[in-house]
Design a protein around this nucleic acid. Structure first.
Lengths: 226, 226
DNA sequence: GTCTATACGGTGATAGAC
DNA sequence: GTCTATCACCGTATAGAC
C-alpha cells in the first residue's frame, strides 16, 4: 500500500499542481492511481468483456461507487488503461527505431532486447493489446499515427540502403520487419502453446526467452545475409 | 440457408447413422450444425465473454431456447466450437509434421503453405484460439498430447541430424521452431497493427500474405544456413 | 423439435448519507 | 472523497404450449 503510494509520488505531484486549488484530501490522486493499477491488472488478464468492475474495485481495495466517481464508466476506465499501456510500453520502442542516425544493427539489437525485457515484466500485455485491437481495429489508426509511422520509414530507408550497397539480401523490407516482430512477440502471445509443447515451467520459459534475445538477433541477420 | 444445409450433408449422415433410431424430424442434425456454424462465427469474432447467445441464435435463424435444447449451456456450445476448430485446422498440420519420412525441406514448405492458406480462409481463428488459451491455459495440455508432441520430436530429430552433418547451423531447435511459427502466424494475429502500419487494405493484405509464403521459406532456410 | 413467455442472477451505474 | 444501499437492465437458462 505505502509502496504503491511512494512509486506514484511523481504522478501525484503533477495532478496536485494541475488542480492547484482544493487538494481537499491528502490521497485523491493516489487512489486514482491505485484504481488504475488494479484495472490494468484485471483488464490485461481478462480483456474488456471478461473484466468485472467489482473485481477491479476489490483489487484496488475500494468499492464500485468510488470507481465510478473517478472514471465515469467502465469504458472510460478501459480507455485510460489501454492508452496508457500503448504509450508506456510501445511508443518508446517506436521512437527509438525512428532515430535516423542509429545504425540498423544497433536498432535491431535494442528492439529485441527492449521488447523482450518489457514483455517479461508484463506477460499479458501483448495478448491484451492484440485482442482489444481486433475488437476495435480503428483504434489502431490513432496509435499508428502517433508513433509507428516514423519508425517504419526510417528502418525501411536503412534496409533499402543496405540492399542497394549489397550488404543485405534484396527483399521486401515489410516482410523482414513483420518476421522480426513475429519472432519477438510470438512466444509471449502464444505462451500456453509454447510452454506446453516445450515442457517449460515458469522459470524455464523465462530462461528460454532470455536465451532468445541473442538467437533472434542471429536469425535476423542470417535472413539479411546476401 | 439451403446452401449451408447441402454443405453439411456429410456431417448429417454421420449423425443419422450414429443415432440409428428415431430420425424423428427431417432436419435435426442440420439445425444442430446451423447452430454450430453460427456459434463458430460469433465466438471466433468476439470470444467467449464477448459473444451473446442471442446473437448466435439470430445468426442461426432460430431462438435461444432451441440453442439450449441442442447444447445444454453456453459453455458446452463453446467447448464444441473450440475443439472443432483445433481438430479441423491445427491437428492436420501437426500430423503432417510428424511423418518420419518426409524430408524437412518439404515439411517446412508444406507447413508454411497450409498454415497461411488456412488462416486466409479463417482470419479470426488464431486470435480466437490464442485468447481462449490464455483464459484457460490447462486446455492446452490436452491439445498438446493429442497432436503436437509427435510433430515436434520428429522435426527436432531431423533438425539435429542436419546440424550434426553440417548442413544446418548449430542452434537450439526449439528457438528455430518458435521463430518459424511466429513468422507465419503473427501477421494474422496482429492484423490490425500490420494493416494499419503498412497501409494495407483487405486486398493488399491478402497479396502481402501470399507473397509471404515464399519469403518466409527463404528466411527460414537462411536462418538454418551454417 | 420448435416456439413464446418468464424466472433468476449478475453487472454497470446512481442516490444519498457521512 | 468514500461509503452503503439500491436500481434498471441484460444475458443465461428453464417451463410449458404446440
Amino acid at each position: 500500500m505505502k509502496r504503491v503510494l511512494r512509486t506514484l509520488a511523481g504522478e501525484y505531484r503533477r495532478c496536485y499542481i494541475n488542480h492547484m486549488v482544493k487538494p481537499s484530501s491528502q490521497n485523491d490522486a493516489a487512489t486514482r492511481d491505485r484504481i488504475l493499477a488494479a484495472a490494468r491488472e484485471i483488464f490485461h488478464r481478462a480483456g474488456f468483456d471478461g473484466a468485472r468492475t467489482q473485481d477491479i474495485a476489490d483489487a484496488a481495495g475500494i468499492n464500485k461507487a468510488l470507481l465510478h466517481y473517478y472514471f465515469r464508466t467502465k469504458d472510460q476506465l478501459f480507455e485510460a488503461v489501454f492508452e496508457d499501456a500503448f504509450r508506456t510500453h510501445f511508443a518508446p520502442i517506436f521512437e527509438m527505431m525512428a532515430a535516423p542516425d542509429t545504425p540498423l544493427d544497433e536498432k535491431i539489437r535494442r528492439f529485441i532486447d527492449t521488447y523482450i525485457r518489457t514483455l517479461l515484466l508484463h506477460p499479458y500485455l501483448p495478448g491484451f493489446v492484440i485482442h482489444e485491437l481486433n475488437r476495435n481495429p480503428q483504434r489502431m489508426a490513432v496509435m499508428a499515427m502517433s508513433a509507428g509511422r516514423g519508425a517504419l520509414t526510417a528502418v525501411f530507408d536503412q534496409l533499402r540502403q543496405g540492399m542497394a550497397s549489397g550488404r543485405y539480401r534484396t527483399a521486401d523490407p515489410r516482410q523482414l520487419m513483420v518476421s522480426l516482430m513475429g519472432m519477438v512477440v510470438y512466444p509471449f502471445i502464444a505462451r500456453p502453446v509454447v510452454s506446453e509443447l516445450l515442457h517449460l515451467d515458469e522459470r524455464a520459459f523465462h530462461d528460454f526467452v532470455l536465451a532468445r534475445k541473442d538467437e533472434v538477433h542471429r536469425q535476423c541477420f542470417a535472413m539479411l545475409n546476401p
